[in-house]
Amino acid sequence: MALNVGPDFKQRWLNTPEAVRQTFIDDLSRICDVLKPETVLEEWLLYDQKSQLESERRIEAAYAQRKAELIEEARIRRQQALEKALNKKRAEAQAYAEQLRRDEELKFAEQNRKLIEMRQQLDLEIQHYTARYQKNPEQVLDFSAGQYRIEDSQIRSELDSVRLRLELEAESAIEQTVNALRDKLRAAAKEEIDYILQNSNLSQ
C-alpha cells in the first residue's frame, strides 16, 4: 500500500526535533517487527504498549526542550533589539550633546572676540588720552588756595590703574562665560541621560 505523508513532508520532517524524529523511526522499526514470521504477537503487543508510553515521554520532553530553546532565542533577539535601540539613543544623545557643545563653543568664541575687541578699543582710548596728556606735560591748574601741578607720573599711574581694572573686568567676564558654558554642557548631558533612562525598556 502507498503511504501518504501529506504535503511539505520534507520541510516538516526537517523542522521536527532530532529526538522526535528518532522516536518516529524507532516506532516504525518496531511496527515492522510485527510483520516478521518469527514475532510472537502477544509478546510484541506488550512490548509495543510499553514502547508507546516511552515514545510519548520522549516526544513530550523533546518538544518541551525545543519550546524552551525557542523562548530563549526570542529573549536573546529581544535583548539585542533593546540594546540596539539603546545604543541608537545613546548615539543620538551624544550627537546632540556634541552639537550643543560646538554651538556653545562658537558662542563663547564670539563673546571672546567681542571682549578682545573691547579691550583693544579700550587700549586705543587709553593711548589716545595718554597722548593728549603727553602733549601738555606742564599743565598747571590755579586754585584759590594756590597752584596745583599734575605730574606725568601721576597721570601714567592713574591710566595704568584704569587699564588694570579694565583688564581684570574683561578676564572676569571671560571666566564667567566659560563657567556658564560648562554648566550648560553638564545640564544638557544630565538631561539626556535622564531621558534615556526614563524611556529605556531595559529598566522594565
Results as ranks from 00 to 15, higher is better:
A2H: 05
L3Q: 11
N4D: 06
N4Y: 03
G6N: 11
F9T: 13
E18N: 05
E18T: 11
A19E: 14
V20K: 01
R21H: 11
Q22K: 03
F24S: 06
F24P: 00
I25S: 05
L28Q: 09
V34T: 07
T39H: 02
L41N: 05
D48R: 06
D48E: 14
E54N: 08
R58E: 06
E60P: 00
Y63K: 03
Q65I: 09
A68T: 14
A68D: 12
E73T: 14
A74N: 06
Q80S: 07
A81F: 01
L82V: 14
K89A: 14
E92L: 10
Q94E: 11
A95H: 02
A95Q: 07
Y96C: 04
A97D: 14
R102S: 14
E105Y: 03
K107L: 09
A109G: 01
Q120P: 00
Y129K: 08
T130D: 12
A131K: 05
Q134A: 15
N136G: 05
N136S: 09
V140L: 02
G146S: 09
R149E: 15
E151W: 07
E151D: 12
I155E: 01
E158R: 04
L159P: 01
L164R: 10
E169T: 04
E171K: 07
S172W: 04
S172E: 14
E175R: 02
T177Q: 01
N179Y: 05
D183C: 02
A189E: 10
E192A: 08
S200M: 12
L202H: 07
S203Q: 04
S203P: 00
